[in-house]
């Protein structure tokens, strides 16, 4: 399983709201992902909600594209990444 940063652009802004409806949409995405072994870890969204940076665990970039397609989400760029954090534990 690899970790990926997925960049997406929403020209009209991302519609996902912290409401019951929004939660429902998010859970649909999670279920569709699971079918392909893809896990949406979390995302960062720009204040204008036009760009998102999403962290995913997935078996391959193709799996991410396939689930994005199922979920009707755009994919601008996929980059494989590793975690690096500033707090080293000895």
């Amino acid at each position: 399983m690899n970790r990926y940063l997925v960049e997406r652009t929403f020209p009209d802004g991302l519609g996902l709201m912290p409401t019951q409806e929004g939660n429902g949409a998010a859970q649909t995405v999670v279920a569709n992902n699971a079918a392909k072994g893809v896990t949406w870890v979390h995302s960062y969204v720009t204040p204008d909600k036009k760009r998102t940076f999403c962290i995913y665990d997935a078996p391959s970039p193709e799996a991410i594209r396939q689930t994005a397609d199922t979920n009707g989400l755009p994919v601008e760029r996929i980059t494989e990444v590793r975690v690096l954090d500033p707090y080293f534990h000895y």
Partner: peptide, 13 residues
């Protein structure tokens, strides 16, 4: 096939 597609899409791997 997969390698070419990843190259052309700019995907990793």
């Amino acid at each position: 096939a997969l390698g070419r597609i990843r190259t052309r899409r700019g995907d990793p791997g």
